[in-house]
């Protein structure tokens, strides 16, 4: 079955589906040369959208790294907590729910006529909430297995030597978890910078205010400015590549600590 035609078919499929369409973006982005690419990316509205996307994504990644680690700790170490089953079931939901549903769900409770009296729809806070919603599983599920596999010997030793639970966590547990936290942060960031469905429904897409990069690209495609859309797409990809590389460099610097133990 995996005779001669297999690899050729797979290569053709991959080329027609991913490689050539992506090459078409690269070529379109530089249609008018590097100068044109730069002009499109530095348009004030585009620049504002890129900045907003990066800043909100970094905020969300930071918040979810802390919250995700806390939740993973509850799920792994606090076995007597009765609500753990509920938390465990809810954490995976954003991963399975379509982004449109995420947008609808958040609007229904944190939008106009909110039953809990919180209305953040069409503000920048809405972007943060939407991105936090869709990236929560990455933070929790990256840390959880590492925490579960961690030996508690060192922690017990620290505690018996008089360290408070917080000191033990900060000096003993956290250093072993950091690589996993960074992995989750990287996955979350990659997802957040490209997010469209949940944000477009919940944020209102106001230029300069709540318009994120993916929405900006969509607007450019809609108004038939394909070279500009391609340029912004490429810029967004470069940005997320740079941030992800920084994350993985940081992770590599932290890893030897774990490898020694």
């Amino acid at each position: 079955m995996r005779g001669a035609p297999g690899p050729a078919l797979a290569a053709t499929y991959l080329s027609l589906l991913v490689l050539l369409p992506i090459a078409a973006i690269l070529s379109k982005a530089f249609d008018g040369g590097v100068g044109a690419f730069w002009r499109e990316v530095t348009q004030t509205e585009t620049l504002a959208a890129l900045k907003l996307t990066i800043i909100t994504s970094l905020i969300v990644v930071a918040v979810n790294s802390v919250a995700g680690t806390a939740i993973a700790w509850l799920l792994v170490r606090d076995r007597r907590f009765a609500l753990n089953k509920v938390i465990g079931a809810l954490v995976d939901l954003p991963f399975a729910l379509p982004t449109v549903v995420a947008g609808v769900v958040l609007l229904s409770i944190y939008g106009a006529g909110s039953p809990v009296g919180i209305d953040v729809a069409y503000t920048r806070a809405a972007i943060v909430v939407a991105l936090a919603f869709v990236t929560l599983p990455f933070s929790v599920r990256s840390v959880q297995p590492v925490l579960a596999a961690l030996d508690t010997d060192t922690e017990e030793a620290a505690a018996s030597l008089g360290a408070t639970p917080w000191t033990t966590f900060r000096r003993v547990t956290l250093p072993s978890l950091l690589p996993a936290i960074l992995t989750g942060a990287g996955l979350g960031f990659a997802r957040a910078v490209g997010e469209f469905g949940s944000v477009t429904l919940f944020s209102g897409n106001l230029p300069f205010k709540t318009e994120v990069a993916a929405v900006r690209i969509f607007g450019l495609i809609d108004s038939d400015s394909l070279p500009a859309a391609a340029a912004v797409s490429l810029a967004l990809f470069i940005v997320s590549l740079v941030v992800l590389t920084l994350f993985s460099l940081l992770r590599r610097r932290l890893l030897p600590v774990e490898a020694d133990s």
Binding site: P21, I22, A24, I25, A190, V193, G194, E195, F196, G197, A213, A214, V215, I217, F218, I221, L226, A229, A230, S233, L236, F237, S240, L241, L244
Partner: peptide
């Protein structure tokens, strides 16, 4: 690591 909108554009 691609935005779905970028996939559509490609």
């Amino acid at each position: 690591s691609l935005s779905p909108v970028v996939v559509g554009l490609a």
